[in-house]
Design a protein around this nucleic acid. Structure first.
Length: 460
DNA sequence: CATCCACAGGAACTTGGGGGCA
DNA sequence: TGCCCCCAAGTTCCTGTGGATG
């Protein structure tokens, strides 16, 4: 036929008329300006700026629902602060060799003006002495969802503080916690710097391991000689501080800031701003952005969702070889995102949890839309033994069901039958046949075609 | 209105696997 | 090699409880 393999890419390439730069729409991307967060940025910056003068900034708590820009604002500030500090370091070193203060002054003024987001550095930085005394600022970002124990957080902070040689790194386990504490202190002090720790999803930390770690961190400055530590906590739970010891609470919540959800107009601005960089200007219908903004505004003003929606719609349009991105694709994207989320979550479930979900879904497609703990436990035991697994007890199955509930895959509700006791009514939230087929094609292939003997005792 | 069912869910304990250190 | 530590997952035990029912 005379066809070359590379022709395949010619066909695929036809789609590429929409995206100019798709990275811009990922939430890992940190733009230079963040519309409708100027005030918040200024607030935090005005607190953090004391670090450049060699003082320890107050701890800050940042609250806000998902997609309100907490993380991206923090990362932007982190980047800016780090750059600024490094810039000043080199200037300070220079100043020992160069006594010409007018030169120095101009140079620093120039350096400051490059930080576009924060106001008048020059004015705040009038004091030359402060510059000489200045300590390097080191920012560390920790996501407490991944690092959710005291041990892990401490070792992570220490390991990230400086690019260390392999043998200097703290081990991921094995040491007593007070030993870790001592070594972290040493590392902090030997870095001789102002350490600002951004702790994202900080509330996760205490749900799992209590407030020990926060207690330690908020009081660590008392033990440090040369270095100082500030903490920026980020949480989407406004009542997070209530769970803490009062001393930790007052220290950590020295400054508090709430990020309000974006409204539809603000979301539209954000999307417009990103879309200019992400798309070719003629490739997108005028109502697409408003539509995405409106949907995300309904979902608690979640900018993350809005960006996702825009990116996925554009990807669908490209895959369809459409020259333009129109609202039809946004509607498709909405469905796709939801289904992707579900399959992704299901795929990463531990095996035993998968079987619990599988049991609930089997009940569902067997016509049992609502079921009870007892029935789930029975069906689960049946399937687990077919899989030659250890069969978990009731207590543990209930725990797993609660996890599934938290993930939004099922809905549970405790109801009472009065004299006849009480139980949890379970209902699957996801399409049964599709997920079951997925599971059959994966790790649960053994269970294909096997039906349990189901005795329905409870009626609703 | 007290009773009582049948389970929810918290707490303490166990087990087994990760590892460090002398 | 033996002993220590941390941690996750699971078990056992037990107290708490919503509301139909006698």
């Amino acid at each position: 036929m005379g066809k070359l393999a590379s022709d395949i890419f010619d066909i695929l390439d036809l789609g590429g008329r929409i995206f100019k730069n798709r990275e811009v729409l990922r939430y890992s991307y940190i733009p230079d300006t963040l519309p409708h967060r100027e005030r918040e940025i200024m607030n935090i910056a005005s607190i953090l700026i004391t670090s450049l003068e060699g003082h320890t900034p107050s701890n800050i708590m940042i609250y806000g629902m998902t997609g309100t820009g907490k993380t991206v604002v923090s990362k932007l500030l982190m980047k800016a602060l780090q750059e600024k500090s490094e810039m000043m370091d080199s200037k300070v070193q220079k100043s020992f060799f160069n006594v010409d203060s007018t030169f120095l002054g101009d140079d620093i003024a120039a350096a400051f003006s490059t930080l576009s987001i924060v106001l008048d550095f020059d004015e705040i930085y009038g004091n030359e002495l402060a510059r000489i005394l200045h300590k390097p600022v080191k920012c560390i970002y920790i996501n407490c969802q991944q690092m959710d124990t005291q041990y892990r957080v401490m070792t992570q902070i220490a390991n990230r503080l400086a690019p260390l040689k392999e043998e200097d790194r703290l081990p991921v386990s094995g040491l007593p916690i007070d030993e870790v504490h001592c070594r972290v202190l040493e590392k902090f002090d030997s870095s001789n710097s102002l350490i600002i720790i951004f702790m994202d999803e900080i509330d996760r930390l205490i749900y799992k391991s209590g407030d020990d770690i926060l207690y330690t961190l908020t009081r660590i400055n008392e033990e440090l000689q040369k270095s100082k530590v500030s903490i920026i906590g980020i949480s989407n739970n406004l009542r997070f501080l209530d769970y803490l010891d009062s001393r930790v609470r007052s220290s950590l919540g020295a400054e508090e800031l709430i990020f309000d959800p974006y409204n539809a107009n603000q979301l539209r601005d954000i999307l417009t701003h990103r879309a200019e960089e992400a798309f070719y200007s003629e490739a997108i219908d005028h109502d697409v952005i408003s539509y995405c903004a409106a949907i995300a505004a309904q979902e608690n003003g979640d900018a993350r969702k809005a960006l996702d929606l825009l990116r996925v719609s554009a990807e669908l349009a490209e895959r369809d070889h459409s020259p333009r991105l129109s609202v039809i694709y946004v509607k498709q994207a909405q469905k796709k995102i939801e289904m992707d989320r579900v399959t992704q979550v299901v795929r990463t479930l531990p095996l035993q949890t998968k079987i619990v979900l599988y049991s609930i879904l089997q009940q569902k497609i067997g016509g049992r839309i609502k079921t009870t703990t007892k029935e789930v436990v029975e069906t689960y035991s049946f399937y687990a033994s077919k899989m030659d697994l250890t069969v978990l007890g009731r207590r543990q199955v209930v725990n797993l069901m609660n996890e599934l509930d938290k993930l939004g895959l099922i809905q549970t509700k405790v109801i009472s039958f009065g004299r006849h006791g009480r139980t949890t009514v379970v209902e699957a939230n996801v399409p049964g046949t599709e997920i079951i087929n997925n599971l059959h094609n994966g790790i649960l292939s053994k269970l294909k075609g096997i039906k349990p003997r189901m005795l329905y005792t409870t009626t609703f």
